[in-house]
């Protein structure tokens, strides 16, 4: 793997303020992820792994510490700038797929392009079809999410995460809602993406999934162990 860091966390702390009570969920997290890595983050629920993922995804801001994404500090960026950053450099895969139910598969896949510079309709459809082909779902392009199985929906979500050709793919319990057979398909797909050069970070509490990754980071009570 290359020596270029894509994600660099230095002494990240996250404290939630609820009324007068403070709840610290992350303690001095230091982490470096290199281009082309395939990392799994495991930990029991409530360990802070989702908070960590949200910070890496630029959806949340750390209370203190430094976060460099692709070598750039994201602290000073506005929320809209972070939206644009996510749009270009990060692909998202969620446990509950998070497709928009009233849009078809291909429309869901195209959606990130709506917020990018690609304005040509033909170009958008073409790209979306290519991504659907990667997940072997071109024959379901016109189907709505409720007409697809869980595994198919997750594959649509993966196609969506790839549409802007991001460097990093963040997967939050991508197999949590799937049976073991389908889970394996999804993991194989992620592996294939890893082989094509993507940096993949997967959050899970399933040890069998975690061991598929190159490296596993364990987190407990907000600390890396």
């Amino acid at each position: 793997m290359s020596n270029k860091t894509v994600i660099e966390l230095e002494n990240i702390n996250k404290i939630y303020q609820t009324g007068k009570n403070e709840l610290q969920v992350l303690f001095d997290i230091c982490l470096q992820i290199y281009e082309g890595d395939f990392i799994s983050i495991v930990g029991p629920s409530g360990s802070g792994k989702t908070t960590l993922l949200n910070i890496m995804a630029c959806l949340d801001r750390p209370t203190s510490g430094r976060y460099l994404l692709g070598g750039k500090n994201v602290k000073s960026k506005s929320n809209d700038d972070l939206s644009k950053l996510r749009n270009k450099s990060i692909g998202f895969i969620f446990q509950s797929f998070n497709l928009i139910s009233r849009h078809t598969a291909i429309e869901n896949v195209q959606m990130p392009l709506q917020y990018s510079d690609v304005i040509n309709k033909k170009e958008r459809a073409q790209k979306a079809l290519e991504c659907l082909e990667l997940v072997d779902l071109t024959n379901r392009a016109k189907h709505h999410p409720n007409e697809l199985s869980g595994g198919q929906q997750q594959r649509v979500a993966i196609a969506r995460s790839l549409i802007n050709n991001p460097d990093i793919i963040l997967a939050d319990e991508p197999t949590g809602n799937l049976d073991s057979k389908t889970s394996k398909d999804i993991i194989d797909l992620l592996k294939k993406l890893h082989e094509s050069g993507k940096t993949i970070i997967i959050i899970t509490h399933d040890e069998s999934i975690a061991k598929e990754a190159m490296d596993t980071i364990r987190i407990k009570d907000g600390r890396i162990i």
């Binding site: 959806l59 996510r86 998202f92 998070n98 990130p112 990018s116």
Partner: peptide
């Protein structure tokens, strides 16, 4: 709400 959350996550700005 969920749709808006998805859209912001995948890159919609407040203007969008």
């Amino acid at each position: 709400t969920k749709e808006i959350g998805i859209r912001i996550t995948i890159g919609a700005t407040s203007k969008d």
